[in-house]
């Protein structure tokens, strides 16, 4: 094999490895869709079966304004995550690092706000066994919060190491961003169905 041919073959391998990595991430996201989808489906079924007074009482205990603020925080963090991917694709590791740190900071802000929200509930004696509504509320927002926490840890870790990455690690940043966007998508559904409607 001549040198240019070998080089082209190596480049093809790299592209194909990059594609496989993303496809693996999409398969993982597919399994996550089923998990959160099942939670949301169960919540809708329980919600439609609940007496209206339980729904009205439970809604009064929630602060939609706080959740709305958190929605904007996550949307902004999704934007900074995609900017990180854009930066690494152009070889701009410094900007990628900055964007990853901002994304992690926004994720941490989301968790702090969520922590205050949970603390407020516990102070009022509202725990997962309070009623069916709050059982679903803590299950869905708790699992979502856990995903945000894992995302923040991975974002910080990646930001620390991104300057050592070469072009083969581009898929790492892209996959992390895919995960983060998925976390955002889940919240896009949770916000209206739990807090507003």
């Amino acid at each position: 094999m001549s040198e240019p041919q070998a080089h082209a073959h190596g480049a093809d391998d790299h592209v194909s490895a990059f594609e496989r990595a993303r496809m693996g991430m999409w398969l993982f996201i597919g399994s996550e869709i089923m998990m959160f989808g099942a939670f949301i489906a169960v919540y809708i079924v329980l919600r439609m079966s609940m007496p209206q007074e339980v729904v009205d009482y439970s809604k009064k205990q929630l602060h939609w304004e706080i959740a709305c603020f958190n929605t904007f925080v996550l949307i902004l963090s999704s934007y900074t995550a995609v900017r990180a991917v854009n930066a690494i694709s152009k070889g701009n590791k410094g900007h990628c690092e900055d964007m990853l740190i901002v994304t992690a900071a926004l994720g941490a802000l989301f968790l702090v706000v969520k922590g205050f929200e949970y603390a407020g509930k516990f102070d009022h004696g509202i725990e997962p066994d309070h009623n069916v509504f709050f059982g679903s509320y803590f299950l869905m927002t708790g699992f979502h919060g856990l995903h945000v926490l894992i995302g923040v840890i991975l974002l910080v870790w990646t930001a620390l190491y991104v300057k050592r990455f070469d072009e083969h690690h581009y898929a790492h940043v892209e996959n992390l961003a895919l995960y983060w966007h998925f976390v955002d998508v889940v919240w896009i559904f949770l916000f209206p169905i739990v807090y507003l409607l």
Partner: peptide
């Protein structure tokens, strides 16, 4: 399809449980 297939499965879970939703407690 990697996104739509799980979404379809979730819809099956949701709609197959709808008969239980009219009980209102």
């Amino acid at each position: 399809g990697l996104v739509l297939f799980p979404v379809v499965l979730v819809m099956i879970i949701l709609f197959s449980n709808f008969p239980d939703t009219g009980l209102n407690g």
